[in-house]
Amino acid sequence: MSSESSASSLDPITRLLDITGERWSFLILRDLFYGVRRFDALQKHLGISKKVLSQRLNSLVEAEMLIRVPYQERPPRFEYQLTAKGRDFFPVLVAMQSWSNRWLFSEGEQGALLIHSDCGQPLDTKLICSHCEGSVTPARIRPGKREQ
């Protein structure tokens, strides 16, 4: 048992990992952003067992990242859709992908890219402060609490 793995932890990263701290959850969320919604398609795309996929989907539904929506009555079949909370995870996945492309691929090797539809350029992320639009680096941040 992880020392900080608890919903009562005040560390946001710990709370996040309680939900997504397992590789399949990130990959399921990635596929849902790509538009894959049905169980059999997710299973085929991820190459995962039914049992594990079912468990991870149930966890994400429980964490309110996804909802299970019926699309057929006979036989009853369902698809999975991102909730607002799930959709808000998008920047996290994009940042992960950018970092991976930058550091985990050797020269000449090309990872999957996301293209920004507006300008047609490969998507890369840059962290700026949404308040002052100034650059954000580890040296320019400090721990704090949200003002009440």
Binding site: F39, D40, Q43, K50, S54, L57, P75, P76, R77, F78
Partner: peptide
């Protein structure tokens, strides 16, 4: 019917 996540 043995569906992906349920039995019907």
């Amino acid at each position: 019917h043995i569906l992906n996540q349920s039995i019907w």
